[in-house]
């Protein structure tokens, strides 16, 4: 326990003794954490937006005008029983005509002297099934029904969204990994500078009988503390930026930047880990 506190104290002292090299490490880690933080929030909100767009895609099932009420009801019940269905709405030919009038301002009877609009079912899918593959499968089943004339959904648009959603995910993960790696390497190099400037401490500790773990521990604590300091600054910066966006920029943009306490804790943990890994990597060269 005494040794533990000694090492912790050494780690804290090291932080204050490290001078400019330590400050440089903190700045590097802080910039990376700010970028990672903003990148995460931007990616998260983009994905939520894309998800919202996807959920608004319905399948329109157009029925033959000759379909009877019983047949339609039977089909509706059949579709409702399917596990992927969230909601099903029947739009009669008359309702379709009314909708046409409300949307285009003209009565279709006045234009064509009859109502060409067929009755239809508008189907919404549950979230896990909002994929092109699932929708195509369902559309094929529905198209085979005797009273179904045509099944329509915005296949191409959905495909584009799906592809971009995946692309965004890949970009986010790659950027995240790249930034983390680069900042660990940069931080580790600057921590290496601080360790190099204190190699006399390492040499002396080894001469008086310190084990490698004993020599390593204060530097790891110091690196972790540097990472934590950087994360604290990054958290304050991000929180202030969000406060600024939400309170002063609402007149210009309708976006609200929100982050939970878990996000901030995650950044603190990530910063500490980056400092720890950086110092672990740096001290290896001296033992």
């Amino acid at each position: 326990m005494i040794v533990f506190w000694f090492l912790v104290k050494e780690g804290f002292h090291g932080l204050f003794r490290s001078g400019y090299a330590g400050i440089f490490s903190i700045i590097i880690l802080c910039i990376s954490l700010v970028l990672i933080g903003f990148g995460y929030i931007a990616a998260r909100d983009t994905l939520v937006l894309v998800d919202n767009i996807r959920s608004q895609f319905d399948i329109d099932v157009f029925l033959y005008r000759t379909a009877t009420a019983e047949e339609i009801q039977q089909l509706t019940q059949e579709i409702s029983a399917m596990p992927e269905i969230e909601k099903i709405v029947f739009i009669s030919a008359d309702s379709a005509a009314q909708r046409f009038k409300s949307e285009f301002g003209e009565d279709i009877f006045d234009i064509l002297q009859y109502n060409p609009l067929p009755p239809s079912l508008t189907i919404s899918l549950k979230k896990p099934y909002q994929h092109v593959a699932d929708i195509e499968l369902l559309a094929a089943i529905l198209a085979n029904k005797s009273i179904v004339d045509e099944v329509k959904f915005r296949k191409n648009f959905l495909r584009i969204i799906e592809r971009y959603q995946q692309l965004i995910l890949v970009i986010v993960i790659a950027a995240f990994a790249f930034l983390t790696l680069i900042s660990v390497i940069l931080a580790s190099n600057s921590i290496k500078m601080t360790i190099f400037s204190r190699r006399d401490v390492i040499e002396t500790m080894k001469l008086v009988g310190a084990t490698n773990n004993f020599v390593r521990a204060p530097f790891l604590i110091e690196g972790t503390l540097e990472g934590l300091c950087a994360a604290v600054v990054a958290v304050i910066f991000i929180a202030l930026s969000f406060y600024f966006i939400n309170n002063y920029l609402q007149a210009f943009i309708s976006y609200r930047a929100l982050a939970s306490y878990r996000f901030y804790i995650g950044l603190l943990v990530l910063g500490s880990l980056m400092g720890l890994v950086g110092s672990l990597r740096a001290i290896r060269k001296f033992l």
Partner: peptide, 22 residues
């Protein structure tokens, strides 16, 4: 080979801390 960032007591005590003395 003394450590200039610590005082005489700390320089000498370092030998014992590494050996886990109380």
């Amino acid at each position: 080979r003394l450590l200039n960032d610590r005082n005489v007591y700390q320089n000498v005590a370092l030998s014992l801390y590494v050996s886990h003395y109380k």
